[in-house]
């Protein structure tokens, strides 16, 4: 049995669909930060059979809304003084800014360096998003995720 101690302050991203934890970690760009991180893959779960879990020490101000794009079934627990002070159930965001990179080579975002990459949800079931500028549609299910998530951007949130 693997034992990971509880954290005093930080966040726990729980109930991540098994296999998606690495994508969330990748997106958050945590591996290059200075924080202590525990990443558990394929943990037993009463609800889902198997799940991934991520615990990040000393960080509570991550904008988690966009994580629903990768796995809307995950939950985020904010921990302070060993207690859960806030529980957030993720959902599929209606609009994301600077998370998905438009893959259309004809899109203006391929040349206009400061234009924010804006995508709107058009089909919740298929998790399809439309680019604000060129209307190109991307599906956020399956293997697309690694190609279009801009994992370098969240680092801005850490003030690096």
């Amino acid at each position: 049995m693997l034992v990971i101690n509880s954290i005093e302050q930080g966040i726990v991203i729980d109930h991540i669909t098994a296999g998606l934890g690495a994508k969330i970690l990748n997106y958050l760009d945590i591996d290059t930060s200075k924080h202590t991180v525990a990443f558990i893959m394929n943990a037993d779960s009463k609800k889902h059979g198997k799940k991934d879990v991520i615990k990040i020490n000393d960080v509570t101000d991550i904008d988690v809304a966009d994580l629903g794009l990768i796995d809307p079934t995950a939950t985020v627990n904010v921990i302070e003084a060993h207690k859960v002070v806030r529980k957030i159930q993720l959902s599929i965001p209606e609009k994301v800014i600077n998370v998905i990179k438009c893959k259309n080579p004809r899109c203006v975002t391929s040349i206009e360096r400061n234009a924010p990459h804006i995508f709107h949800l058009i089909n919740e079931e298929e998790r399809e998003y439309r680019c604000e500028y060129c209307d190109d549609i991307v599906c956020m299910k399956g293997d697309w995720q690694n190609e279009i998530l801009r994992k370098e951007w969240p680092s801005v949130r850490y003030g690096k």
Binding site: R106, V108, T109, A115, E132, Y133, D136
Partner: peptide
Amino acid sequence: RHPKEGAPRV
């Protein structure tokens, strides 16, 4: 007029 799609929106 611009060859890139969405340029006028920018």
